[in-house]
Design a protein around this nucleic acid. Structure first.
Lengths: 339, 339
DNA sequence: CTGAAAGCGCTTACAG
DNA sequence: CTGAAAGCGCTTACAG
């Protein structure tokens, strides 16, 4: 397939390649009539600028990298999709790079893709955005990068967040408002920084409402369905029956739901269950799970915005943009008035 | 960040750029001692060839495109991951391109990314790999492409499959071998070509075993959890009780499972339930769902192999490679002996 | 086995 | 407002 080049367009339009370049890049200083003529030829010939040639001469690649631990997770899918669509709007492309920190050679892979693809910027997803060695590498290479929901305020990196603490606070308030007092809580794993923030929110709301947290009803899970299943058993075995269980994520909430059903406990009549994340299955379950919608795609899109913002690209010295995105409490069938 | 170029390496190694090029591309005709010297300098300088420069001069991009309808689905994630890892092994990169056939302008997007990125090849996932207009576009542009599990044998495209019919046949045989005779079947949507093949396999196995299919126990679902939930109700309402239900995919099987639990029907003691796909939640459910493992990642990896195979790249005229990959029947807790 | 020349298709920097 | 020249960092095609 013979590709159409800028010269072909120039020749046919009777102008210089440079003028064609100006038109396709939307630069000023082109007479309207010439602009129109060029655009007409571009359309006729179905001309597309060669991204490689452009990158080679301009030292910009129009490529962003998404560095992610486990590209198979539902979380990853949402993040990626958000980034992808925004990249498209901005005429950028996205390259997904799986990073396996536990396997040797990850540093080489990361360095290789950044250097050989001349990435214009990088988006780093959790949990690897909390790895100091990884971040050091990006800082050292000097590539603009934005972290998605990192655990701590990064020194030299941009970051996009949601307020896990506040969201958990709201969820807890919601349960309390429904009359619940005996509320169980399933913590997330220590490896995820959000776990701690969600627990804080839970405890704060309980404290503010003057409700004592029963420590025997606070158990640590690992964000898996199975751990929800098992910890649900323990919580439902407590002598003084709980009226609500707040799990730190939907997968665990789903596990608790199944456990309740196995025991013939009616949800939400006898037990309210709430989760966090709004994964697809939380909507598919029966009853549907009350949860917090985490703005995953929005955070990724915001990261793209930051990285492709001309202002940011120019004066990115010592500057680390931060952005907090709104979440949403989604009330569904799994929670109701306390019995 | 000042990038190291081939000239820097050449100068430091005391050879010409062409020789460095030979070494990094693993070409012959380089004296071993010179090769070693160059490689040493490459390592010292941490040199990475500029992918754009290479692509521009060689007219190869080392880029493959994955064209997919819904990049957020679990199916997409598996396909993408399989392709991604194999690309990495082959020193290719993968660009994911969402294609929304129902939205205007998709043709322009597809054409744009192929042309401006000079993709070396394309992988097209279901269900869009069944769209004639889409395929025509790829054939017309003349880009090598491989379809994943298309409905019909494509004329001018490569294809990678699994044997849906045979897999459903095996699953049905498995149920029959366990003593089941009254077996319900939930069909997939007509829009997915695999639906028909799975149903064929089911009917064939029933016929071979001399078991009559009760048409009132064959219902059409749409591959969603919710449809499994609803159709499960209908199937469990049948006057002559079923002992097994075979759903065309796991999401629907999960729905049936929940419905059975709601009714206090013991699985698998009173009812066996089987699915198809082996999605993550089929393992997370309780009991775990007996299912067919679809080689999603393997099909994608095979597509990458085909597209990056030097032999294929050279003589790709009129040739359309085909590959059938093995599936696997995974027996788990949701199926057992007929009561 | 090794290298000098030319070129891939754009953009940058400079003239006019 | 427009264009001629040079160059981005590689590889191809050709010599030697």
């Amino acid at each position: 397939m013979k590709m159409v080049t800028i010269k072909d367009v120039a020749a046919r339009a009777g102008v210089s390649p440079k003028t064609v370049s100006r038109v396709i890049n939307g630069e000023d200083h082109v007479r309207p009539e010439i602009r129109d003529a060029v655009q007409k030829v571009v359309a006729e010939l179905n001309y597309r600028p060669n991204a490689f040639a452009r990158s080679l001469s301009s030292s910009r690649s129009y490529l962003l990298g998404l560095f992610i631990d486990d590209p198979v997770s539902g979380y990853a899918a949402d993040v990626q999709h958000g980034a992808l669509l925004r990249c498209r709007e901005r005429s950028y492309h996205l390259v997904v790079e799986p990073v396996e920190l536990q396997r040797q050679g990850w540093e080489d892979h990361v360095r290789g893709s950044i250097s050989s693809l001349r990435l214009d910027g990088a988006i780093i997803a959790p949990p690897i955005c909390d790895d100091a060695r990884l971040l050091d590498l990006f800082v050292q290479i000097g590539i603009p990068h934005v972290l998605i929901a990192p655990s701590t305020e990064p020194k030299n990196s941009g970051a996009v967040w949601m307020d896990d603490r506040r969201a958990a606070h709201e969820m807890t308030q919601h349960l309390i408002a429904q009359g619940h007092r005996r509320i169980g809580f399933i913590q997330g794993p220590l490896s995820h920084s959000a776990s701690g923030r969600r627990e804080e929110g839970f405890r704060a709301a309980m404290g503010e409402a003057g409700v004592t947290v029963d420590e025997s009803a606070v158990l640590r899970g690992d964000f898996t369905f199975r751990s929800g299943l098992e910890l649900g058993e323990t919580l439902l075995d407590l002598p003084d029956a709980l009226t609500a269980i707040f799990a730190s994520n939907d997968d665990m909430a789903l596990g608790v739901l199944i456990t309740a059903m196995k025991r013939g406990i009616a949800v939400p009549e006898q037990l309210s269950i709430s989760g966090f994340d709004d994964v697809a299955t939380s909507r598919a379950a029966w009853p549907q799970i009350t949860t917090i919608r985490q703005p995953k795609a929005e955070m990724a899109a915001a990261a793209v915005d930051i990285l492709t913002d001309p202002g940011f690209r120019k004066q990115r010295v010592g500057q680390a943009p931060r952005l907090m995105l709104p979440h949403e409490l989604i009330t569904r069938g799994s929670t109701g008035k306390a019995p």
